[in-house]
């Protein structure tokens, strides 16, 4: 059972599920980046999102830029789905 924020943060280990993403030149957080296959209206593409600890992204607003260094890609935050402990950022590729 997940009881504390530390329990939740244990899932955001850059050695396992999570990775470092950049909110600006020198601002980085750990997030779990998903880029899954999607087929909508007969078009294939990627459904991408970044799951983060709530407190890490309270200042991240719609329109903010996020860089995923691992795949050398930049995204704009288009929606925020805020849960009890984590937030899913819905991303649009720049």
């Amino acid at each position: 059972m997940i009881e504390t924020i530390e329990d939740t943060r244990s899932f955001f280990d850059s050695g396992e599920f999570a990775e470092v993403v950049y909110l600006g030149a020198n601002i980085s957080i750990l997030g779990i980046f998903d880029s899954n296959f999607d087929e909508t209206i007969d078009i294939t593409g990627r459904r991408v999102g970044l799951r983060c600890i709530n407190s890490d992204v309270t200042g991240v607003n719609i329109g903010a830029s996020i860089t995923i260094n691992r795949i050398d890609a930049m995204y704009t935050v288009r929606a925020k789905e805020v849960g009890a402990r984590t937030t899913l950022l819905i991303l649009e590729q720049i």
Binding site: D38, T40, R47, L91
Partner: peptide
């Protein structure tokens, strides 16, 4: 037009 936002880039047909 049908416009969708499920992917990392808006799509439409």
């Amino acid at each position: 037009p049908i416009i969708e936002r499920t992917q990392d880039i808006p799509i439409a047909t």
